[in-house]
């Protein structure tokens, strides 16, 4: 249905926009320049991306190497049967669960090294000294008895 009062009957169907007279004469050259400058910019951007990719690849390889080394070390330690509980952890555990262990088991499992021997000797010396002091035996009496 045709609307006789339509605004479109009163409108000129012309393009109201304009450009300078020479605009379209110079546009092809201008476009060609833009095309070439875009072409020149692209390799630089591509190179940057390529360099970034290489750096990321190196970083990933390095991290991968570290991870593999860590896995290797863990594997060999497990294979050699190393105890992973630290001394402090062991003491804390035993202290907390003292009731679970009898004295004999604890003594059996205390590792005795050189230091422990020295400590035992020290304790023995200390008891001898305190016995001598308690009994009032002086150094001269001791030497005379020897």
């Amino acid at each position: 249905m045709v609307n006789k009062d339509s605004i479109f009957d009163k409108l000129k169907k012309e393009n109201p926009f304009r450009v300078t007279d020479q605009y379209f004469d110079s546009l092809p050259e201008k476009i060609l320049e833009s095309v070439y400058s875009a072409d020149n910019q692209e390799p630089a951007n591509k190179n940057k991306m390529l360099r970034l990719k290489h750096l990321l690849a190196y970083a990933a390889s390095f991290l991968g190497l570290i991870f593999l080394s860590y896995l290797g070390i863990q594997y060999f330690r497990l294979k050699q049967g190393h105890n992973y509980i630290s001394k402090n952890d062991a003491i804390e555990y035993v202290s907390f669960y003292t009731s679970d262990f009898d004295e004999a088991t604890i003594l059996e499992n205390i590792p005795i090294g050189k230091n422990e021997n020295i400590s035992a000797n020290d304790a023995e010396s200390e008891s001898i000294i305190s016995y001598l002091v308690d009994e009032g035996i002086d150094e001269l009496t001791l030497y005379s008895e020897l």
């Binding site: 393009n15 926009f17 450009v19 379209f24 546009l27 092809p28 476009i31 060609l32 095309v35």
Partner: peptide, 18 residues
């Protein structure tokens, strides 16, 4: 490419301009 630009530049410009 220049032939293509010359052929279509006006039509495309006015389309974009609107």
């Amino acid at each position: 490419f220049l032939l293509l630009v010359e052929k279509y530049q006006k039509r495309l410009y006015w389309h974009v301009r609107k």
